[in-house]
Design a protein around this nucleic acid. Structure first.
Lengths: 110, 110
DNA sequence: TTGACACGAAACCAAAAGGTGTTATATATT
DNA sequence: AATATATAACACCTTTTGGTTTCGTGTCAA
């Protein structure tokens, strides 16, 4: 077993809507577990678990400050998702506009 | 219950590695259930379930041809994922522009 | 030092996910 | 018409997920 025996990857991490909401929260600013919990109708423990999963997926990281643990977003891993997406992007762009590629040769604008 | 009582969304659909592999297969060409099953170490029934979930998420669609059901990719829904991603993109581009060496490694060969 | 506070860890639970096999039904082939 | 085939529809099993509660520990403040 390699050292990267990672139980949760990015895809699983973002599968849960609560975790996606947590990410949105942390995108704005660093927050403690209790502060995050305040935004959701569930227990602190549940949120802590979600944060653990997000942490495993390298989407957030937490540092202890006093008796608090403050989490912030670490969006690097989303790049893996982006690359995965880009693989399919060519397909839906190509397929949806077979004629279009004649017109716009390489308009990498959007 | 509204008509859009959709059990699986895109995020859940792509959370499973088997389903991501199925998407890659279908990206290349349309395939029947049996053909898809041939690529995986599991039963046809299991694959059919995965296809059902992918279908719910509007990532694939199947049409009956004779006694076969052939599935093809329907990548429109990935756009939702792309939009979700783009929200965070600004963060990691702004915040982590210093760590650009990661991005610069991007050799889109495979 | 005492007590409130923020957190971690563990035990537990219900429901969903992911798989199996069997049976039924419609379609092709002969 | 008979048979083989591709899939759908079930029933079932096991593991994972997402939540709970309880208890213990370190930290801050009075």
């Amino acid at each position: 077993m390699s050292a990267s025996a990672q139980k949760h990857d990015v895809f699983q991490a973002i599968a849960d809507p609560t975790r996606r909401d947590i990410l949105k929260l942390l995108a704005e600013k660093e927050l403690s577990i209790l502060e995050i919990t305040g935004h959701f109708p569930m227990s602190r423990t549940a949120i802590a678990k979600h944060l653990h999963i997000l942490s495993e997926a390298k989407l957030v990281n937490g540092r202890k400050i006093g008796r608090e643990k403050r989490f912030r977003i670490q969006p690097d891993s989303l790049d893996e998702l982006k690359q995965w997406l880009s693989y399919f992007e060519q397909f839906w762009h190509n397929k949806l506009s077979i004629l279009k590629h004649i017109v716009e040769n390489q308009n990498e604008k959007d």
